[in-house]
Write a protein that binds this DNA or RNA. Structure first.
Lengths: 208, 208
DNA sequence: TAGATTGTTAATCGATTAACAATC
DNA sequence: TAGATTGTTAATCGATTAACAATC
């Protein structure tokens, strides 16, 4: 397996995973890069190039076994073992994520929600409890947390990320509208919803 | 203004807009591409190239006026006039978006929520009402809607998008976990949350 | 004016696509 | 075997960075 897989390739992997799941559900057991390229509207060349960053999963003259390929991609994406998450920011968005059943199915387990608002502390989403953010240092070390979901207002994001980093959390899923500066061994996936909405606005304006 | 602005450039515009807003709040009135590049961790060259797709907003020997530049970008992004949205899918995510005050401040006005679940029909988020999705054809034409936010389960996304397209909606903000096939004059910005989470999982796995 | 900094052209880098020998 | 399709190298395309003349 090559080093330095480009970010563009990683970004496409979940999409392959999704389409392969749909093919599998539809009872399709094998597929060529050519057929898949038509369904996914990318080039067959790109599919083969992307996959061969990780190994030769195909068979000449046959194509790819759908189930095997999906499984290989799930290994690559680290979906084989579960991940424990906490959500910091118990507002609407945080609670929406906490209550999203699909994540649980894929092995992303929300262990706790934290907030600083007394009106939500103590409430639950399903069986996930909401704690005071003051208790981060007490509770997080007991939960074996991999990933912190940041859904608090941007003003608190940097400080909270730093506290969580000190508790050993290296992976941040950041919904706060700010770019975090993290130490070199930590990393962050940003979901800036308003950036996405503005891109849509741009396209709307320029489509007339 | 050039034609065919690349998608990579458009994607960066909201980030420029955000940083310029922060600079303005901090009382900074002018900035050079060099200074901005240090703050944003991109190259000065890229900033100048990006902006010059839309016009010469800078002044030699001076740099850029922060307020003017922010304003120009808001024009480019189409943020000067308000946009009316509907949300189809009144679950946690849809209600989180409906209740997010920042969008309203930027001129994105949620006019109505639609759902097919009787237990949420009739409820409100702030003063936004939730209607039966059966009433789309009756209500949407009365609201001058620009953008439809799709937060329903993926099974209903394609059919709903088609109904909305027939009602004249061309812009879709899609949170459903599927890729929509839309007519050529319609377009869609996807927010696939689980794709983003899987990328984080990949990085976690490969960071050890 | 002299210094600073843009706008823009040219050079480089990286990602995508095409082509085809290898091989199932 | 013959046909199909991969894995991989080479060619192309597009995006980023560097350089510098123009000019405020």
């Amino acid at each position: 397996m090559k080093q330095n897989i480009s970010k563009a390739v990683i970004k496409r992997l979940p999409r392959y995973y999704r389409y392969l799941g749909e093919l599998l559900d539809a009872g399709i057991t094998r597929i060529s890069s050519e057929e898949l390229s038509k369904i996914m509207k990318v080039t067959a060349s790109q599919i083969r190039q992307d996959l061969n960053n990780f190994g030769g999963f195909g068979h000449q003259g046959y194509g790819y076994n759908v189930e095997t390929l999906k499984d290989e991609i799930s290994v690559i994406l680290g979906l084989k073992s579960p991940h424990n998450l906490i959500i910091v920011g118990g507002g609407n968005l945080g609670r929406a994520i906490a209550g999203y059943p699909k994540f649980g199915n894929r092995g992303f387990i929300v262990k706790a929600i934290f907030d600083n608002d007394k009106s939500v502390i103590g409430s639950r989403v399903g069986d996930i409890e909401t704690y005071s953010v003051d208790l981060l240092e007490n509770i997080v070390p007991t939960l074996d947390i991999d990933i912190a979901v940041l859904t608090m207002p941007k003003e608190h994001a940097a400080e909270t990320a730093e506290r969580l980093y000190k508790l050993g959390i290296k992976a941040f899923w950041n919904f706060a509208h700010t770019d975090l500066q993290l130490p070199g061994d930590a990393f962050c996936e940003n979901v800036h919803l308003s950036d996405s909405l503005m891109q849509l606005s741009y396209r709307l304006k320029n489509s007339l």
